[in-house]
């Protein structure tokens, strides 16, 4: 067993364990931190496959930007207490059984696929030079459209996040009480 195989298994086991911890841990802040670990292991897989550009983008965009945004929102809402109401035990069991059945069916269906090999540490299609050439030759239009998508997402986030006009305190308190009652039903 070469060093590549050993690294693959270590990264795979860490990825699955940290993904499980994302779902299991009660505190949302710990969930975010475990998700960052998962993203780093997936970046490690990209490096093993010699997709260096995607590995770097994955760390910068996911672990750097998106997860900081999540952490920001959780801290802003002061959710880092374990106040989340839990689903009932039977619903959790049903969810786990449903997911397990899906995994079982897919694994059973894909078990006898051809044993094609992937290229692990060599090959230069994942390098930034090749991807840049392909991106700006064949994929210019999708690239420009994605910039419009970003602009519209930015405008949408600002419009949604803008503070609404102030309503009197009593009305707001009544609304809060109504929603609290609505949960208890």
């Amino acid at each position: 067993m070469g060093i590549t195989q050993i690294l693959f298994w270590i990264l795979a086991i860490t990825a699955i364990f940290s993904a499980l911890m994302v779902v299991i841990s009660k505190n949302p802040v710990y969930s975010v931190l475990w998700l960052i670990v998962t993203f780093f292991t997936i970046s490690g897989h990209y490096i093993l496959l010699n997709a260096q550009f995607l590995a770097v983008v994955n760390i910068i965009v996911y672990a750097g930007a998106i997860m900081v945004l999540f952490l920001f929102v959780i801290m802003l809402m002061n959710l880092n207490k374990e106040t989340e109401p839990q689903k009932s035990k039977w619903l959790k069991l049903a969810g786990a059984v449903a997911g397990g059945c899906l995994l079982l069916v897919l694994v059973a269906g894909l078990r006898h696929t051809e044993k094609q090999m992937t290229e692990m540490v060599t090959g230069d299609i994942g390098l930034i030079q090749n991807l840049g050439k392909v991106l700006f030759k064949d994929y210019v239009v999708p690239f420009e459209i994605s910039s419009i998508l970003f602009l519209s997402a930015m405008v949408g986030a600002v419009v949604l996040g803008k503070k609404e006009p102030r309503i009197p305190v009593e009305t707001e308190m009544r609304k809060v009480e109504e929603t609290q009652q609505a949960i208890n039903i």
């Binding site: 993904a19 499980l20 779902v23 049903a94 969810g95 786990a96 449903a98 397990g100």
Partner: peptide, 9 residues
């Protein structure tokens, strides 16, 4: 599938 289980539970 771990992601799906998280969404469901």
């Amino acid at each position: 599938v771990i992601g799906i289980i998280g969404v469901l539970t």
